[in-house]
Nucleic acid binder design. Structure first.
Lengths: 263, 263
DNA sequence: AAAATAGTGTCTATGAGACACTATAGT
DNA sequence: ACTATAGTGTCTCATAGACACTATTTT
């Protein structure tokens, strides 16, 4: 551990530079400005899907910079805290959700992404089952917004967020969070095809049509009903519960997601 | 809410919530060193493919911990340095390569992955064209090793590295670098199918059989010659040069990789 | 000529899309 | 009976694998 107040040339960094044989060579070859350390944060993109589209949870900023804008739930990583644990903690503290699917997304580290100081952010994305969207968000001012993706397929790029309800006022995003959100959407779209990720956005029991609607909302394009059914049933990840859901017509079989050891 | 100057170890993120109404005053008063920070490093998995298999470049460690073991080329991120730039720099300084395909892989941050102090490592992977493997690695002691993947398809997990040449002695890997390497191999296998990534491992002009061999080595399974040809030619990413390569039999057309704007 | 590698033509199996049809509920 | 949704059967088309065949070089 380094000691405070004394920037020592033999800081821990130097020992990791295996090719340096002596201190003089180290000082000559390595920029001394590398000694100050960046802050490391996690930002979590919490995504959900309702009947109308993609939702994400944002927190209004009460301070500068970007005061009044909305930010992803985020926080700094504790000195003895794993990255995954930090993401879980942030999701619980700032959004009030626990037990949510969570996966690392990408690490953003442009030197000027935070005007205050150097902050490297390890971004995560999380998927919330639809019935949980209404859970009280821990009295925090966290707020769901509707994600507006201006690009097709998996092109990528920043996205916009609008307020839910009449007016649909734009929610201005702080920092590079529009880019982080965009990458989360891109990742989700990409993973949907070959990964059992869609189930995370639904309650435990759901109909095939429910599942198809989730896929259509995420991918933002209509899917063929027949081949979607075949593909899902052939994947071996669905288990019929025997129960049925009554809607406007013939009751639909309710399925449950089952993890298969052998893929 | 915490006050400036009174860091609470249990809540490093609270620092960003200090209440200052004026932005200039806030920026001036923001004390970046209020909380202990992890060090942030980049580690680069440099991969190449020769006739026999996957290669990676490792650097022997001259100091504790893991003295005598091999580590990925790595280094600390400068306080004003972008992550991509740090990865490029590390690759140039420690391996002697510039102008290489480079992409972020994953960020590793277990609290005890480095026994000395908390180090969060943003891992990158890089792909080197085969003819460049022989380039002098800047007089460094960096050394190519042969990657031995003990799992099938895209299962994932740590991999082993052996010395090249007779004996094939195991190269012990430092820190969690066997896991980082494993994730790089998994990512490469996954991207190969839907991404023009294989060309990065070949010289500018190559035959279709060359390309197929690269794919077979990376995926570690034989591919169908006919459908591989069709798939590659249909992708629109190959351009015939008109030149031919003479080998043991009929000369093969030499192709060149061309980036297509519209995918 | 024989061997070796490059490249083509075609048959077949598989999976997706399209569409018609049957099944079961509410009104 | 009518309508709405659930679910099945089957045809077609696109693509991958398999295999036979031709083409062009070296030895």
């Amino acid at each position: 551990m380094s000691r405070p107040g004394k920037p020592r040339p033999k800081a821990p960094e130097s020992r990791a530079l295996a090719r340096v044989d002596d201190e003089a060579a180290f000082l000559a070859s390595y920029d001394a400005s590398a000694f100050p350390r960046p802050s490391v944060a996690v930002d979590v993109v919490l995504l959900a899907v309702d009947e109308a589209g993609l939702l994400t949870l944002l927190v209004p900023r009460a301070e500068h910079p970007y005061i009044g804008a909305y930010a992803l739930p985020g926080g700094f990583v504790g000195i003895d805290e794993a990255l995954d644990a930090a993401a879980s903690r942030v999701l619980a503290d700032k959004a009030g959700y626990t037990g949510v699917f969570l996966e690392q997304l990408y690490t953003f580290g442009s030197p000027r992404r935070d005007p205050r100081t150097r902050v490297i952010s390890v971004a995560y994305y999380a998927l919330l089952a639809l019935p949980r969207v209404g859970e009280p968000a821990l009295g925090d001012r966290a707020k769901w917004g509707r994600v507006d993706v201006p690009w097709e397929a998996e092109t990528g790029g920043p996205v916009m967020v609008k307020e839910i309800g009449p007016g649909e006022r734009a929610m201005v995003l702080a920092f590079d969070h529009a880019h982080i959100l965009g990458m989360a959407v891109k990742r989700l779209r990409g993973k949907l095809d070959y990964s059992p990720i869609g189930f995370q956005l639904l309650p435990e029991r759901f109909t095939l049509l429910d599942l198809q609607r989730v896929h259509e909302i995420v991918l933002d394009r209509p899917l063929n009903k027949d081949s979607f059914r075949r593909r899902m049933l052939a994947s071996g990840q669905l288990e019929a519960t025997g129960e049925h859901h009554q809607g406007g017509g013939r009751p639909a079989e309710l399925y449950r997601f089952v993890r298969r050891s052998a893929v």
